[in-house]
Design a protein around this nucleic acid. Structure first.
Length: 454
DNA sequence: TCTGGGGTCCTAGGACCC
DNA sequence: TCTGGGGTCCTAGGACCC
């Protein structure tokens, strides 16, 4: 065990050793794709392997995935493109608009490989590019991690890193080190390791999974600067600053499992579609067009997952970088669940009336669908259940036609896909994929076969 | 000039009730 | 001067994640 630890990790003093009260001795792994969106672009276009690469957010506003060369330039996650554009161009960086349907295909392929290799009862899909693994016996973990890394690279050309430990939080730490330390060759096992405390000592407190920028500031003010400092804290002592989550994080750093690996299928609790407008808009009609368009997209996602909603929320915001930033949201809760677009348009319209303010330059808006339930468990309506069934099936037919013949071939009269609220993208490499772009839905759900069509 | 999007969970505090 | 009090439910907003 631990033959893959970096040589730079020196043995720790005996006083740092800790006994770990544990019932569940399973090893936990996290498998994380390196620079995922960039790696996908490189997998389909190997010429990009010789250049620095970034992938941009919607509207080409921010950098959301960076190759290692770009990270070395100091470009941060979600950094606005305009701040670094000159530097990127000076380094001959490939600047690419995002292509989510491509990334989803790779995510599905990797997921399938993991399930085939490890079995369904082992893999938790945590995000589009990460999976937690419930591995059972902590034997030969490095061998297993190395095997998975090779398997996925051979089949997909996507490089991954694997971290292994007693808890999710410690596995995350191991994964972090595996990513940046060449000596680990992408796999680090910290299960029962005498190097764990040293690894924690090298991890800034803000890099701990669950410690965000706000908490990091508060904890540093108390003299806690590393993951090891946090581990040494009493769980209750951090509740004030970090809620109950903080206490769990402390226990997890001590090797005590508090956050289980969740294998069972996860149903989305909410589905959203939100966008920054291409240009600020102030007319009610334009705002309404945009939000009904967003609603249509959100409802498509919802129906693909065979869910119905009861509460819709609309929000409207002005430019968040201005001092006179204004934001308002309004929710409408119906007595019935529904997945019928025309009916939900009416709920959304009520919300728009409540949020819209004359004379404001709105820059961003969104629709959130919540209180979601599977269609199969929805109670019948007291009135007009037949009418609802008819409209429900009409929606299914529309979705199928749109899938087969192209998005919005069939749509409601109120739907308008053109407008200055639409954003611009200039860096598209794979335009043909974008006509069927599908956004990810809740964790676990983005991999459903029902949303896969190219 | 230009600044992403989609999620989850927790909690303080208001509303309401008895 | 005195100006209950405790429980529950709901929600807006904060914080975090990728």
């Amino acid at each position: 065990m631990n033959d893959a630890h970096p040589n730079s990790l020196r043995p720790i003093p005996a006083m740092l050793y800790h006994t770990r009260p544990m019932k569940n001795t399973n090893a936990i792994g996290i498998l994380d794709c390196n620079n995922f969106f960039v790696s996908c672009e490189r997998a389909v276009n190997p010429a990009l392997n010789d250049r620095p690469v970034v992938v941009l957010s919607h509207n080409d506003g921010c950098v959301i995935s960076r190759s290692n060369e770009v990270k070395a330039m100091g470009v941060k996650m979600a950094q606005p493109l305009f701040q670094v554009r000159k530097m990127l161009e000076a380094h001959n960086t490939a600047i690419i608009s995002s292509n989510h349907s491509l990334y989803r295909q790779y995510a599905e392929q990797i997921h399938d490989l993991l399930i085939e290799d490890l079995g369904k009862q082992v893999v938790e899909l945590y995000s589009i590019d990460e999976a937690f693994l419930d591995l059972g016996s902590p034997d030969k973990l490095v061998m297993l991690g190395t095997h998975l890394k090779k398997l996925i690279f051979d089949k997909t050309k996507i490089p991954v890193s694997v971290g292994l430990a007693e808890t999710k939080t410690l596995a995350k730490v191991a994964n972090h080190i595996a990513k940046v330390s060449a000596k680990t060759q992408g796999v680090l096992d910290l299960y029962g390791s005498r190097f764990t405390d040293l690894a924690l000592n090298q991890t800034p407190i803000g890099d701990v999974w669950g410690v965000g920028p706000r908490s990091a500031v508060k904890l540093k003010a108390k003299g806690l600067n590393t993951a090891f400092d946090l581990k040494q804290t009493k769980p209750d002592a951090v509740r004030e600053d970090m809620t109950i989550f903080g206490s769990r994080t402390v226990l997890e750093l001590n090797g005590i499992k508090c956050i289980p690996v969740e294998i069972s299928e996860h149903l989305a609790k909410s589905i959203a579609h939100t966008r920054t407008f291409g240009k600020p808009i102030r007319s009610f009609e334009e705002v309404q067009k945009a939000i009904l368009f967003f609603t249509t997209r959100a409802l498509e996602k919802m129906r693909w997952n065979d869910l119905q909603t009861r509460t819709v929320t609309v929000f409207l915001q002005t430019d968040r970088f201005r001092s006179d930033f204004y934001a308002k949201s309004f929710s409408y809760r119906s007595i019935y669940h529904s997945d019928v677009t025309s009916e939900i348009y009416e709920w959304v319209d009520l919300c728009i009336q409540e949020t819209f303010v004359e004379g404001m330059d709105f820059k961003k808006a969104g629709v959130i669908l919540s209180e979601l339930l599977p269609s199969t468990v929805i109670a019948p309506r007291l009135f007009d259940q037949q009418g609802f069934d008819r409209r429900h099936h009409l929606m299914r037919s529309m979705d199928e036609l749109n899938m087969r013949y192209g998005r919005d071939v069939v749509h409601f009269a109120a739907l308008n896909t053109e407008g200055k609220w639409q954003g611009q993208t200039e860096h598209r490499l794979n335009d043909e994929n974008h006509s069927v772009e599908r956004d990810a839905v809740g964790k676990g759900q983005m991999f459903r076969r029902s949303i896969r069509f190219m």
